Measured scan of single mutants.
Amino acid sequence: TTFEIRVGDLRITLHNADEEEIRWAEEALRRGIHADEILRTLEERRR
Rank of each mutant, 00 (worst) to 15 (best):
1 T>Q: 11
1 T>W: 13
1 T>S: 06
1 T>Y: 14
1 T>I: 15
1 T>M: 10
1 T>G: 13
1 T>F: 11
1 T>E: 12
2 T>V: 10
2 T>I: 12
2 T>P: 12
2 T>D: 12
2 T>S: 14
2 T>N: 09
2 T>M: 12
2 T>H: 15
3 F>Q: 14
3 F>N: 14
3 F>P: 02
3 F>R: 09
3 F>K: 10
3 F>T: 15
3 F>L: 15
3 F>I: 14
3 F>E: 09
3 F>A: 11
3 F>V: 14
3 F>H: 14
3 F>G: 05
3 F>C: 15
4 E>Y: 04
4 E>A: 01
4 E>S: 01
4 E>D: 10
4 E>I: 09
4 E>L: 06
4 E>T: 06
4 E>P: 04
5 I>G: 01
5 I>R: 00
5 I>K: 01
5 I>T: 02
5 I>E: 05
5 I>N: 02
5 I>M: 06
5 I>D: 05
5 I>P: 01
5 I>L: 07
5 I>Q: 03
6 R>K: 15
6 R>Q: 14
6 R>W: 15
6 R>D: 09
6 R>I: 15
6 R>H: 11
6 R>L: 14
6 R>Y: 13
6 R>F: 14
6 R>V: 14
6 R>N: 14
7 V>R: 01
7 V>F: 12
7 V>D: 07
7 V>M: 05
7 V>E: 07
7 V>G: 02
7 V>K: 02
7 V>Q: 05
7 V>H: 07
7 V>C: 12
8 G>C: 02
8 G>A: 04
8 G>Y: 05
8 G>L: 03
8 G>P: 01
8 G>H: 04
8 G>F: 03
9 D>F: 06
9 D>M: 06
9 D>R: 02
9 D>Y: 07
9 D>L: 02
9 D>W: 04
9 D>P: 08
9 D>I: 09
9 D>S: 13
9 D>G: 05
9 D>V: 06
9 D>H: 13
10 L>C: 05
10 L>N: 08
10 L>A: 11
10 L>R: 12
10 L>V: 15
10 L>Q: 15
10 L>E: 13
10 L>D: 14
10 L>Y: 10
11 R>Y: 13
11 R>A: 13
11 R>G: 12
11 R>P: 03
11 R>V: 11
11 R>E: 10
11 R>L: 11
11 R>F: 14
11 R>N: 12
11 R>H: 15
11 R>M: 15
11 R>K: 15
12 I>Y: 14
12 I>N: 02
12 I>M: 11
12 I>H: 02
12 I>A: 02
12 I>W: 08
12 I>T: 02
13 T>M: 09
13 T>Q: 06
13 T>L: 09
13 T>G: 03
13 T>Y: 06
13 T>C: 03
13 T>W: 04
13 T>P: 05
13 T>E: 09
14 L>G: 01
14 L>A: 01
14 L>C: 05
14 L>Y: 02
14 L>P: 01
14 L>W: 04
14 L>M: 07
14 L>T: 01
14 L>D: 00
14 L>K: 00
14 L>I: 10
14 L>S: 00
15 H>C: 04
15 H>V: 07
15 H>G: 05
15 H>Y: 14
15 H>F: 13
15 H>A: 08
15 H>P: 06
15 H>R: 05
16 N>L: 04
16 N>F: 07
16 N>Y: 07
16 N>H: 07
16 N>A: 06
16 N>E: 07
16 N>I: 05
16 N>T: 04
16 N>M: 08
16 N>W: 07
17 A>H: 03
17 A>K: 02
17 A>G: 04
17 A>N: 03
17 A>V: 14
17 A>W: 04
18 D>E: 05
18 D>M: 07
18 D>Q: 07
18 D>R: 08
18 D>L: 04
18 D>P: 03
18 D>G: 05
18 D>F: 13
18 D>K: 11
19 E>T: 08
19 E>G: 09
19 E>D: 12
19 E>V: 11
20 E>G: 13
20 E>Y: 09
20 E>Q: 12
20 E>M: 08
20 E>A: 05
20 E>W: 10
20 E>K: 09
20 E>R: 09
20 E>T: 12
20 E>H: 02
21 E>Y: 02
21 E>H: 02
21 E>A: 04
21 E>T: 03
21 E>V: 02
21 E>N: 02
21 E>L: 02
21 E>G: 04
21 E>K: 00
21 E>C: 02
21 E>W: 02
21 E>I: 03
21 E>F: 04
22 I>Q: 05
22 I>R: 08
22 I>W: 05
22 I>E: 02
22 I>L: 08
22 I>S: 05
22 I>H: 04
22 I>F: 06
23 R>S: 11
23 R>F: 06
23 R>N: 09
23 R>H: 10
23 R>K: 14
23 R>A: 11
23 R>D: 03
23 R>G: 10
23 R>M: 12
23 R>V: 08
24 W>D: 01
24 W>L: 08
24 W>V: 02
24 W>N: 01
24 W>Q: 01
24 W>H: 01
25 A>L: 07
25 A>V: 14
25 A>C: 04
25 A>P: 00
25 A>M: 06
25 A>W: 03
25 A>F: 05
25 A>S: 07
25 A>Y: 02
25 A>I: 08
25 A>N: 00
26 E>H: 07
26 E>F: 12
26 E>D: 07
26 E>I: 10
26 E>N: 08
26 E>R: 10
26 E>K: 14
26 E>Y: 10
26 E>W: 13
26 E>G: 01
26 E>C: 06
27 E>R: 08
27 E>F: 08
27 E>S: 12
27 E>P: 00
27 E>T: 11
27 E>L: 11
27 E>I: 06
27 E>Q: 10
27 E>N: 12
27 E>K: 09
27 E>M: 11
27 E>Y: 09
28 A>S: 14
28 A>Y: 05
28 A>L: 08
28 A>E: 14
28 A>H: 05
28 A>C: 09
28 A>N: 07
28 A>K: 06
28 A>M: 08
28 A>R: 05
29 L>V: 08
29 L>I: 09
29 L>H: 03
29 L>F: 06
29 L>D: 01
29 L>E: 02
29 L>P: 00
29 L>Q: 02
29 L>T: 03
29 L>S: 03
29 L>M: 12
30 R>D: 05
30 R>H: 11
30 R>Y: 09
30 R>P: 00
30 R>K: 14
30 R>M: 13
30 R>A: 09
30 R>S: 15
30 R>I: 14
31 R>Y: 10
31 R>M: 15
31 R>Q: 10
31 R>L: 10
31 R>V: 09
31 R>S: 13
31 R>A: 14
31 R>F: 12
32 G>A: 02
32 G>W: 01
32 G>E: 03
32 G>M: 03
32 G>L: 03
32 G>Y: 02
32 G>S: 02
32 G>C: 06
32 G>N: 07
33 I>T: 09
33 I>H: 07
33 I>A: 07
33 I>M: 15
33 I>Y: 08
33 I>Q: 05
33 I>W: 13
33 I>R: 08
33 I>S: 06
33 I>V: 15
33 I>P: 00
33 I>D: 02
33 I>K: 05
33 I>F: 11
34 H>L: 12
34 H>Q: 13
34 H>G: 14
34 H>S: 13
34 H>Y: 13
34 H>M: 13
34 H>F: 10
34 H>N: 14
35 A>Q: 11
35 A>P: 15
35 A>S: 12
35 A>G: 07
35 A>F: 10
35 A>Y: 10
35 A>C: 03
35 A>N: 14
36 D>Q: 07
36 D>T: 10
36 D>W: 10
36 D>L: 10
36 D>V: 05
36 D>N: 08
36 D>G: 08
36 D>M: 09
37 E>L: 09
37 E>R: 06
37 E>C: 05
37 E>D: 11
37 E>P: 01
37 E>K: 08
37 E>A: 03
37 E>V: 12
38 I>T: 01
38 I>A: 01
38 I>F: 03
38 I>M: 06
38 I>R: 00
38 I>G: 00
38 I>N: 00
38 I>C: 00
38 I>Q: 00
38 I>L: 07
39 L>C: 15
39 L>E: 07
39 L>F: 15
39 L>Y: 15
39 L>N: 05
39 L>T: 08
39 L>M: 11
39 L>G: 03
39 L>W: 06
39 L>R: 05
40 R>Q: 11
40 R>A: 11
40 R>E: 14
40 R>N: 11
40 R>S: 12
40 R>C: 06
41 T>K: 10
41 T>E: 15
41 T>F: 12
41 T>R: 03
41 T>M: 11
41 T>D: 08
41 T>I: 11
41 T>C: 04
41 T>Q: 13
41 T>L: 12
41 T>G: 11
42 L>R: 01
42 L>Y: 02
42 L>V: 07
42 L>G: 00
42 L>M: 03
42 L>K: 00
42 L>D: 00
42 L>T: 02
42 L>F: 05
42 L>W: 02
42 L>I: 15
43 E>W: 06
43 E>L: 10
43 E>Y: 07
43 E>G: 04
44 E>N: 04
44 E>L: 06
44 E>Y: 04
44 E>V: 08
44 E>G: 03
44 E>S: 05
44 E>K: 03
44 E>M: 05
44 E>R: 03
44 E>W: 05
45 R>H: 09
45 R>T: 08
45 R>Y: 09
45 R>M: 13
45 R>D: 07
45 R>G: 11
45 R>F: 11
45 R>L: 08
46 R>T: 02
46 R>E: 03
46 R>G: 03
46 R>Q: 04
46 R>A: 04
46 R>S: 03
46 R>F: 04
46 R>H: 10
46 R>W: 06
46 R>D: 04
46 R>M: 03
46 R>P: 02
46 R>Y: 05
46 R>I: 03
47 R>C: 14
47 R>Y: 15
47 R>S: 14
47 R>Q: 15
47 R>A: 14
47 R>V: 15
47 R>L: 15
47 R>I: 15
